[in-house]
């Protein structure tokens, strides 16, 4: 088939239009990513960025057999601190996203109802989303303060606790503190995505079920939930990916707490603070692999029509 002038011109233009963007992404994303992965196979340190030697998988796993016959394993994969971070991250992501999904859906259902001041409520729930993470971490750190925090005061006053809790410092509660702030901050995002999904459900579906006299709870499980599920699933996976890479909230709210240290936090700690540049790179590479797995899952589950061809 002969290429028409119009098509040829458009495709030529498209290439020129895309080139700067692709070049920029290659420069700021692809190259650094490959370098990071490369670093994870070397013994590079912060002070000797250019003299690192290739060490293979040593940063991930290596072993040495002592003369006594005992084998010593080293590397990220046998580092209990790393596995603790993995466990923290996964637990955080799972719990936060689950609760956010449920609460988000509930808030969305409320916002989807017709009532006075709905716009005001929607504006109000946007506030947590708009506040910078660091700021919300600080705000909550203050509210969760053991001596002068208002949260302890409230719980004390209504009799839920008998003594003040050091939320962020205590090993048992630190994770709950992080979860609390994260849920507070990101439930609005969930709710808005769910609301968008809810609003795509045609009203007559509800009217029909009302005329048929279906119980509201049954309506929710048989009509609303299945129809809102695609939007909800996408939102969940979006949030999941976000939660898996969490850094700032944990870093500021519960600094240096082993109970909350996530993969991103521990990677950066090794990279920059402990001058184990290559070791940190290995950890960040592992996190990247994990997230890559999830992205694949998202695209596969979401069955996104990426080309946008509507035919």
């Amino acid at each position: 088939m002969q290429q028409a002038e119009l098509q040829a011109q458009r495709i030529r233009a498209a290439m020129w239009f895309l080139l700067p963007m692709i070049a920029a992404l290659a420069f700021v994303a692809a190259y650094p990513l490959l370098r990071s992965i490369y670093f994870s196979f070397t013994d590079t340190t912060l002070t000797s960025l250019y003299t690192g030697q290739w060490v293979g998988f040593d940063n991930y796993l290596n072993w040495r057999t002592l003369p006594s016959g005992r084998t010593i394993y080293r590397g990220t994969l046998v580092d209990p601190a790393w596995w603790n971070a993995v466990w923290n991250t996964v637990r955080f992501a799972f719990v936060s996203v689950s609760i956010e999904a449920i609460l988000g859906l509930m808030v969305a259902l409320v916002l989807n109802a017709n009532f006075h001041g709905r716009g005001l409520v929607r504006a109000a729930i946007l506030i947590p989303w708009a506040i910078p993470t660091i700021v919300s971490a600080k705000m909550w750190a203050w509210m969760l303060n053991d001596q002068f925090g208002i949260v302890n005061d409230m719980l004390f006053n209504i009799g839920l606790i008998s003594e003040k809790i050091a939320w962020t410092a205590n090993v048992d509660t630190a994770m709950w503190a992080v979860l609390m702030v994260d849920i507070w901050k990101t439930t609005p995002f969930m709710a808005l995505l769910c609301l968008a999904g809810l609003q795509m459900i045609p009203r007559d579906v509800y009217e029909a079920s009302k005329i048929d006299g279906v119980h509201p709870i049954k309506v929710f499980f048989k009509i609303t939930l299945p129809l809102v599920k695609p939007a909800l699933m996408v939102a969940i996976i979006f949030r999941m990916l976000d939660a898996l890479r969490i850094f700032d909230l944990v870093y500021v709210l519960t600094p240096n707490s082993a109970a909350t240290k996530t993969m991103s936090v521990i990677s950066r700690e090794n990279l920059i603070e402990f001058d184990k540049f290559a070791y940190g790179s290995a950890q960040s590479t592992l996190l990247f692999l994990m997230i890559a797995l999830f992205v694949t899952l998202y695209i596969w589950l979401g069955k996104v029509d990426l080309s946008g061809d509507k035919q």
């Binding site: 991103s264 960040s284 998202y298």
Partner: peptide, 18 residues
């Protein structure tokens, strides 16, 4: 889309060098 979901930490050491 994949890049937008990237963990920033994964490029940190490469970017640091750059």
């Amino acid at each position: 889309l994949a890049v937008s979901m990237f963990p920033q930490i994964a490029v940190l050491s490469g970017l640091f060098e750059m």
